[in-house]
């Protein structure tokens, strides 16, 4: 019977790696700009759909090449969001930005529906051949998901702890006023955050699409999980968000053994609700700060 649970945990780690990617991006944006970007989910969706577009006729690039323009465009969307919507609203009431990000998310999501329709789509790739380790079944793409997440996080860790840019980024999320006194280049830091968040979200979206399928709501659904993960780890705490993502992935998948799969999402919702009420700073939360 342990094989069953182990399989669920493995599924959980796979799902959790991707949630962690989304959560980390969301946490970074919150850590520096102090707002929850409701339209973060659409970076996920657009990443996936753009990769589909570049790898399908008429462009028909092989997938490993198609991800490059897909991610570049996703980064473009992320930067445009900041440039045209979030930056002008930076000094406003946090509610204005929240509503604006809700509007943006609606705009972008319907953009997907406009160009690609609402039906499920998928990549037609033979990546779903699986490997069997003892009792565990895992597909090639799922292994890729976990490895990609590991790679991204390693790069992020290196960036944040070994480069001046990364340290400046952490400084900005600690104390933005002090950072400008220090002479830190805010524009560079801003761009870096959005590039990182967009790349993580877009890549996660592509991987998710490869593992399951594409639909216009995929970003929104992932956003809820990502947000729960961010809250769990402490709003703004990157590594907490990572752990939070894994935790939610594993919990969701394990829960299938106990409750109806229809209520899987309920876990994330419930977690968010409870965490907001008892501990909006999460379990590793220290006031703000990207760490």
């Amino acid at each position: 019977m342990t094989g069953y649970y182990t399989q669920l945990i493995v599924n959980g780690i796979v799902a959790g790696s991707i949630y962690a990617l989304f959560a980390v991006g969301l946490a970074m944006v919150y850590g520096v700009f102090k707002f929850i970007n409701f339209s973060h989910g659409e970076l996920i969706t657009w990443g996936g759909y753009l990769a589909l577009m570049f790898s399908s006729p008429p462009i028909a690039l092989p997938l490993y090449l198609a991800v490059i323009p897909a991610l570049l465009l996703t980064v473009g969307i992320g930067l445009a969001q900041d440039c045209f919507v979030f930056r002008p609203l930076r000094q406003s009431n946090p509610i204005s930005i929240l509503i604006a990000s809700i509007g943006l998310s609606y705009l972008l999501r319907n953009g997907i529906r406009l160009f690609w329709g609402s039906d499920l789509q998928s990549f037609n790739l033979p990546l779903s051949t699986g490997i069997i380790f003892g009792d565990i079944y895992i597909t090639r793409i799922q292994i890729l998901m976990v490895l990609s997440a590991l790679l991204f996080f390693s790069i992020l860790y290196f960036l944040l702890t070994r480069t001046l840019l990364g340290k400046s980024l952490r400084a900005v999320s600690d104390n933005i006023e002090l950072s400008s006194i220090m002479g830190i280049n805010m524009r560079k830091v801003t761009w870096t955050i959005w590039i990182l968040a967009s790349v993580f979200a877009g890549s996660g979206g592509i991987l998710l699409a490869l593992d399951t399928s594409l639909d216009p709501m995929m970003g929104m659904n992932s956003l809820i999980k990502a947000f729960a993960a961010v809250l769990l780890g402490g709003a703004g705490n990157i590594w907490g968000a990572l752990v939070g993502g894994l935790f939610i992935g594993i919990t969701e998948n394990l829960s299938v053994a106990f409750i109806s799969p229809d209520y899987k999402d309920f876990i994330s919702y419930g977690l968010i609700f409870i965490l907001l009420l008892i501990k909006p700073r999460g379990f590793f939360g220290i006031a703000g700060g990207v760490r």
């Binding site: 919507v85 609203l89 609606y106 705009l107 319907n110």
Partner: peptide, 24 residues
């Protein structure tokens, strides 16, 4: 006709954003 609903949705989203930016 299948473009109508998404376009409407985009317009709604756009209006929300613009209202926040220009006339909250």
């Amino acid at each position: 006709t299948r473009f109508v609903a998404p376009l409407q949705g985009m317009i709604y989203g756009f209006i929300l954003v613009i209202m926040m930016l220009k006339r909250p």
